[in-house]
Amino acid sequence: MLVGVGLGPGDPELLTLRAVRLLREAAAVFVPGKLAYDLVQPYRPDAVVLKFPMTSDEDYIRRCLEENADRIAPQALDGLVVFGIIGDPNFYSTFSRLCEVIGEHYPEISFATEPGISSITAFASVANVPVAGGFLVSDGSGLESRIFMKVRRPAALAADLKERGYSEFVLVERMFLPEQQVYRGDDLPEESDYFSILFARRPHE
């Protein structure tokens, strides 16, 4: 199994307890650069630094992803492998692209992620900017996804979003609590808990 572990925004004190545990338990640890290595080094000085170029050359990026996939896969086939990444592995990260390539060549490998403190939430603390109400986050590309918090009537909200072109829905209630529930697609309840998040995505245009 390959687990993408968020290492937070760069401060070693902002690693989660779960991140530290997984780093210690893993058969092997890989990271995409020196900053990530410096964060995991106290727990895994044997971590392997892989090359992930910052370039717009998609062919070169693809070759590097395939080379990295071939280095990671043999160990992920036999045990727990951690890929430590700055921020959160599901927000604008290299990990999802890496999983796509590994999945193409090594479909027997399973994937999971563990959250880290992202730059989006860390920014508010550093800048002392409290955030309330709706806000927009973008990497400059199209706005295909929306996240709604405190969703009390998820089925009705999803129906409204369908009329605006959204077709993929995921609702999570009381996440990381014992009674956590995850609903997908059209299987959304009429009413939901206060501690709930609805993710909606429409096809890329």
Rank of each mutant, 00 (worst) to 15 (best):
Q180N: 09
I102C: 02
I147P: 00
V20I: 15
A76W: 03
I102M: 04
R202N: 08
V182M: 06
E13Y: 06
R202L: 08
G8Q: 11
Y60A: 15
T121H: 10
V101C: 00
Q75S: 12
R201K: 10
G10A: 11
F111Y: 02
G6I: 13
E66R: 10
A200T: 13
Q75C: 05
L171F: 09
R146E: 15
R202F: 07
V182Q: 02
D46I: 02
F195Q: 01
Y194Q: 08
L161H: 09
E66V: 06
R202Y: 08
D186H: 10
I120D: 10
A19S: 04
E163Y: 00
V151R: 02
S138G: 02
V172T: 07
G140R: 11
A200Y: 05
D11V: 12
G79V: 02
A28H: 04
S93M: 05
V170M: 14
A122H: 08
D70V: 09
E173K: 06
Y166M: 06
F91W: 13
V151C: 02
S110I: 00
V5M: 06
R152P: 13
L17G: 14
R146N: 12
S192H: 05
R62P: 05
P107D: 06
L39N: 06
T94G: 00
R21W: 03
D187S: 10
Y183W: 14
P130H: 10
Q180A: 11
V48H: 14
P12R: 12
Q181Y: 08
S93G: 13
Y183T: 08
Y37C: 02
R201M: 12
P74S: 12
L188E: 02
E100F: 11
I197V: 15
E205G: 08
L17F: 13
I197W: 03
E114K: 00
F169Y: 08
Y43E: 15
V31K: 05
G8A: 12
A132D: 13
F148L: 12
L98Q: 04
R202D: 11
S125W: 14
